[in-house]
């Protein structure tokens, strides 16, 4: 037997936290048992047989001939070819009611779904269901632009029909909106409830800062108060919702986190979590000791919130753009694979015809799908591979010889021990939230 290659160890007081990235599980070990696990494994079996058995059971200890890397390769291959799920992103509009200074999208004023593009999307989805009997889940994500500009009159009827079509076939469709929340009004809440909608809502920090970034262009009226009220309204009125609050931070916003937490102090922690994302244009010098960020994460957790930071949660591929069953449809019938670039002809990779057939640019698609994102010298030996799977296929298409620039470890603003301690605390909070009270 041997210790798993994917064990990471962090000292904590007189103990060690061990995190196995392949199986996404933590354990707390005494200093002595940590030493035996790392250096004298047979002695651990004698000195603490029950501990040894449990470590084997949870795969912190594996057979000598275990091929953990090979298992991960197979997992990736299975995931990107998974016939049970389809990831569909819709761009109902590339217009927006705000003008955040850091947004990379090219706005198309007045753009919106047409009756023809709506019917094309419905025809495509029906064909998916009927030609792929293994397909069980359709994950529909609304992006843009601001996807809710024409929600009641255009988007909701389309999504309600997708939901009905799925249910008639005993399949599942789920709906997720990436939105600034300005268009979520009391009269739309029952519609979102019928869709079992979940959301990502972006925040730019405390009220003054948020209102300097997210304001109505004509009146310069800030949107912070309305956004906070909407978060409460959604959690109180939607039975099954979940809201990922994407907190765009920079060095100025981090010290003011308590103000934002105070404004969300009564929100249902089961329905709201926080994701911290640096505004990339404010690029930190990537020193791995940002104490203000560490304090901000700790403060959210101290107040009972789930917190995510970095894109290192356990999954089976780097980005869904690598999945075979994935497409992005814009309001005008153009099709894309990557949602992290602007939706311009340069990045267009296909077309959805009026009768619902998707025609990819075969050359572009082949180049993208041939990329195995972790299969490079940088990632193959990385113990974080099960959490990361390497730079996304878009970055590798654009910069195939400079992958190190995109390594998440390089951009992490916490030390690895601090990051693992944060993840350990976060896992404890999640466990507590999952436990029925």
């Amino acid at each position: 037997m041997k210790a798993s290659y994917y064990n990471l160890y962090v000292p904590h007081k007189e103990h060690f936290i061990c995190y196995n990235t392949k199986n996404d599980i933590f354990c707390l070990l005494t200093d002595r048992n940590h030493d035996l696990l790392c250096n004298h494994l047979p002695q651990l079996a004698q000195a603490a047989p029950r501990v040894y058995e449990q470590l084997v059971e949870q795969r912190f200890i594996v057979d000598d001939d275990a091929d953990e890397y090979g298992e991960l390769c197979a997992e990736y291959d299975t995931a990107i070819h998974n016939p049970n799920v389809y990831y569909l992103t819709l761009l109902p509009s590339l217009d927006c009611n705000l003008r955040c200074w850091y947004c990379f999208e090219k706005h198309v004023k007045g753009s919106h779904l047409t009756p023809e593009s709506t019917q094309a999307i419905l025809a495509y989805v029906r064909r998916l269901w009927d030609e792929h009997p293994q397909l069980a889940h359709l994950n529909v994500e609304m992006f843009g632009g601001e996807p809710l500009l024409y929600f009641r009159e255009e988007l909701y009827p389309l999504l309600a029909q997708i939901k009905q079509d799925a249910e008639e076939r005993q399949r599942k469709a789920s709906f997720f909106f990436v939105t600034n929340a300005v268009c979520i009004t009391p009269d739309t809440l029952p519609l979102f409830d019928r869709l079992n909608a979940s959301f990502q809502i972006s925040i730019d920090g405390y009220k003054d800062r948020h209102d300097r970034v997210k304001f109505i262009p004509g009146t310069r009226e800030g949107t912070y108060d309305r956004m906070i009220e909407t978060v409460y309204s959604l959690t109180r009125n939607l039975k099954n919702t979940y809201i990922n609050l994407r907190l765009n931070y920079d060095d100025e916003t981090l010290p003011h986190m308590a103000d934002l937490i105070q404004d969300l102090i009564d929100v249902d922690r089961h329905k709201v979590g926080v994701h911290l994302e640096r505004v990339w244009q404010t690029g930190h010098s990537a020193k791995h000791d940002n104490q203000a960020l560490k304090a901000a994460i700790d403060l959210w957790m101290l107040n009972g919130f789930k917190v995510s930071y970095m894109n290192l949660g356990r999954r089976s591929f780097s980005c869904k753009a690598s999945a075979v069953n994935q497409a992005i449809f814009s309001y005008d019938g153009t099709a894309y694979k990557c949602s992290g670039r602007d939706f311009t002809p340069q990045h267009c990779e296909g077309t959805l015809t009026a009768d619902g057939f998707l025609h990819w640019d075969a050359g572009k698609l082949e180049r993208r799908m041939n990329i195995v994102t972790y299969d490079n010298d940088l990632c193959r030996s990385c113990k974080l591979m099960p959490l990361c799977w390497g730079p996304c296929c878009q970055k590798q298409l654009e910069s195939p010889s400079d992958l190190e620039r995109f390594c998440q470890k390089r951009h992490m603003e916490l030390s690895m021990p601090d990051y693992i301690c944060y993840q350990f605390n976060e896992a404890c909070i999640e466990t507590e939230l999952r436990t029925p009270s």
Partner: peptide, 23 residues
């Protein structure tokens, strides 16, 4: 209205095999 907690223990502060599963 509740107030923001600014002091206190995070889960690991008061902790020995103990397992915690990730998400």
């Amino acid at each position: 209205m509740k107030q923001v907690k600014t002091t206190g223990n995070l889960p690991m502060d008061g902790m020995i095999l103990m397992f915690v599963t990730g998400g």
